[in-house]
Amino acid sequence: MFGAFRPTQTNLVGLLWKTPWKLSRTRKANVRARLKQVDSVIEAVRASGVQCKALDQALELPKEHEMPPRDKYTVFSRHTKGYRKGIHKVPKWTRLTLRTNPKGF
């Protein structure tokens, strides 16, 4: 039952990577920290006093404290049942802007 040669799923079927269905508490805390970090960048640019289209668009994004948990940890997916999947299923998700979702979903 124990030991290096125990019959686990990983040993029996070869390549088997499992992505958890939802984020752990720690990963969610890291998500929030990253969102706040991005908020601070936008705030710094706003405080500098320049005006540009990119800034207007960035200011329209919801801030971390304004976002519902649903938007922080999941994204819209048209293929998934319930139209939502974990945000960690999106490639490069920690370095992308994924704050808004289609209205009603």
Binding site: R34, Q37, K53, L96
Partner: peptide, 21 residues
């Protein structure tokens, strides 16, 4: 410097950097 073009560039890469005035 604080200019619109630099601000736009910063906002393009806002996930990757920290910015201070």
């Amino acid at each position: 410097r604080h200019t619109p073009d630099i601000a736009g560039k910063i906002l393009t890469i806002k996930e990757l950097v920290t910015v201070e005035n």
